[in-house]
């Protein structure tokens, strides 16, 4: 348990270290989610277009 506390305290720099890692996670995860959403959207649009095309 104390080992875990030691790890989390980062030698007294916990605030700086963990805020940095948290911000990085938010930004990088954000761009990953944004990109995959765009791909999903483009896919559904392409499928819809193909279906409309077949109906005609």
């Amino acid at each position: 348990m104390s080992e875990l506390m030691d790890f989390l305290s980062m030698g007294g720099y916990a605030f700086y270290v963990w805020t940095s890692y948290a911000l990085t996670t938010i930004i990088l995860l954000g761009i990953v989610i944004w990109s995959s959403r765009q791909l999903k959207q483009s896919r559904t649009q392409a499928i819809r277009r193909a279906q409309q095309h077949r109906k005609r």
């Binding site: 483009s42 649009q45 193909a50």
Partner: peptide, 26 residues
């Protein structure tokens, strides 16, 4: 991921996109 999305958007008139889309392969 982003380039695939852009290809699908821009090549929307290409026949291969329609083909893939019909087979639900995109």
């Amino acid at each position: 991921v982003r380039v695939r999305a852009l290809i699908l958007q821009r090549e929307n008139r290409a026949s291969w996109v329609a083909e893939l889309a019909e087979k639900n392969h995109v």
